[in-house]
Deep mutational scan, measured.
Amino acid sequence: MSIQHFRVALIPFFAAFCLPVFAHPETLVKVKDAEDQLGARVGYIELDLNSGKILESFRPEERFPMMSTFKVLLCGAVLSRVDAGQEQLGRRIHYSQNDLVEYSPVTEKHLTDGMTVRELCSAAITMSDNTAANLLLTTIGGPKELTAFLHNMGDHVTRLDRWEPELNEAIPNDERDTTMPAAMATTLRKLLTGELLTLASRQQLIDWMEADKVAGPLLRSALPAGWFIADKSGAGERGSRGIIAALGPDGKPSRIVVIYTTGSQATMDERNRQIAEIGASLIKHW
């Protein structure tokens, strides 16, 4: 067993022997301040990774656009098919120029040779490549099948209805392509620590998230040296922004954090800054 596999296998073990965790309302004060600064709703939840206990939450059962955070769930569904012998990570998928959609920095470079399922998941999570996500959605049967996968996990809230990039439209009061912070946090925890996926697939999923290259201005910008984070960000229309993450000190994750916002007129930089400040408060009061 590799060191990384050992780390993920012992996530519940280490967490069980940690000192009790206590909620700190100071972080919620910052979440509410972010709402004021952005002029928009902000949803927040913080779960203990081992027990699933909610440590703090704000608007945990209000719907927010998922945006690209759905790509972690998508690759979880792909990995479940791999575990069941219905898919192979090494299978190569070929596609054409007509398949390319807006923001496809990886797939646009491989029109000639195609990409493997493993490479597509890596591109979808680490670079948020939209064509990679659409190609992977095709392998599982489309958005409705991802929703069905989530329902089978016990998540009857999260739903995907459309493809990239239309799913980022974020129309107010439109339930399409949305989740709730509580539902997303619980589902992410199941994917990373539950028995739904094999140990190898859980490790692969967290490795992809740990290698995320496009979430630097968010929670990662607030992390002290030595902290662990595996995350996936999302951005959408109407001032929408979000991030889902597993993080913790001492090089291992111990909490799940989900943050979503929508309806702001603020710039992307300002949305990023507010999420980073929430992260800084979380870490300060850990």
Rank of each mutant, 00 (worst) to 15 (best):
T187D: 13
L55M: 13
D250F: 13
L135C: 05
G239L: 02
V214S: 07
A84N: 14
T193I: 13
V258Q: 03
N272W: 03
S221A: 15
V82Y: 07
G251V: 08
D177V: 01
E145Y: 11
R91A: 07
M115W: 00
Y260F: 13
A235N: 05
W286P: 02
E26V: 11
R59E: 02
V157R: 11
Y103V: 06
I244R: 02
D99L: 08
D231R: 03
S240F: 04
K144I: 14
E145R: 12
T138Q: 14
R63G: 03
L38M: 12
M184F: 09
E166Q: 13
G76T: 07
L73I: 12
A222P: 10
A235F: 02
G114F: 06
M180K: 11
T186R: 15
A276L: 09
G279Y: 05
R273Q: 14
D113C: 09
V42M: 12
I171C: 15
Q265D: 15
L136C: 04
S51Y: 07
D33R: 14
E237C: 14
V157D: 10
E26Y: 10
H110L: 09
Q97L: 14
T126Q: 09
L188Y: 08
L47P: 01
F58Y: 11
M67S: 11
H24P: 08
C75M: 05
M184L: 07
S221W: 08
G194R: 09
M115H: 03
A211N: 11
I256Q: 00
S281P: 04
P217E: 10
E26G: 15
H110V: 06
T261V: 14
H156W: 13
N130K: 02
G142S: 07
Q86M: 15
R176D: 04
G248Q: 00
N134T: 04
V214Q: 07
G154D: 11
Q37C: 12
L73D: 01
G216S: 08
L111E: 08
R176K: 10
D99A: 10
T178W: 02
L247E: 04
L282S: 06
L199M: 15
E102S: 15
G234H: 00
W163S: 09
G242R: 03
E108L: 11
L89Q: 06
H24E: 10
A276F: 11
A246T: 12
E61V: 11
R202Q: 15
A183F: 10
T116P: 06
G242I: 03
Q37G: 13
L205W: 04
L79H: 02
